[in-house]
C-alpha cells in the first residue's frame, strides 16, 4: 500500500480481524461439548513475513469443563474489546498516513 509503515499497519489490522473471528467463534461455541478454545500466536504472526495465512492453534492452560469444553467467556470478552481497541488505534494511525499522503497530493492546499 502506501509505504512500509502503512503495510505493517495493514498486516496488523488483518491479524486483528483474523483474531476477532476466532474470538467470535470461541464465544459462539461456549456451550458446544468438546470444543477447544482456538487462537493465533499474535506476536509470532506479526513478526513473521506478511501475506501468510495465520496459523490457528489451540490455547493451552484453560480449565476444561465437564463437557470437554474449555471456552472461558471472561478471556474471550477481554480479547474482544482488546482487539477492537487495537484495531481502533491502528485505523487511526492509518488514517493519519492517508491524510499525510493526501496533503502531499494536494500540495498542502484545501483537500476537501
Amino acid at each position: 500500500m502506501l509505504d512500509r509503515v502503512a503495510g505493517q499497519l495493514e498486516r496488523y489490522m488483518d491479524l486483528l480481524s483474523a483474531r476477532q473471528k476466532l474470538v467470535a467463534s470461541n464465544i459462539a461455541n461456549a456451550d458446544t461439548p468438546g470444543y477447544r478454545t482456538r487462537d493465533l500466536d499474535f506476536q509470532g504472526e506479526f513478526e513473521a513475513a506478511a501475506g501468510l495465512t495465520p496459523e490457528v492453534v489451540p490455547v493451552a492452560g484453560l480449565p476444561v469443563k465437564n463437557d470437554g469444553n474449555n471456552v472461558s467467556l471472561d478471556r474471550e470478552a477481554r480479547l474482544l474489546s482488546e482487539n477492537a481497541m487495537r484495531f481502533q488505534v491502528a485505523s487511526s494511525l492509518m488514517r493519519t498516513q492517508i491524510h499525510t499522503l493526501q496533503t502531499a497530493i494536494t500540495g498542502g492546499g484545501q483537500s476537501e
Partner: peptide, 20 residues
C-alpha cells in the same frame, strides 16, 4: 449477549475501516 457483543465489536471494526 456475548454473541451480540462480538457482533457489535466486529461492526465497530468494520466502521473504523470504512472511516479510512
Amino acid at each position: 449477549e456475548a454473541n451480540v457483543a462480538s457482533i457489535s465489536a466486529a461492526k465497530d471494526m468494520i466502521e473504523r475501516s470504512l472511516d479510512l
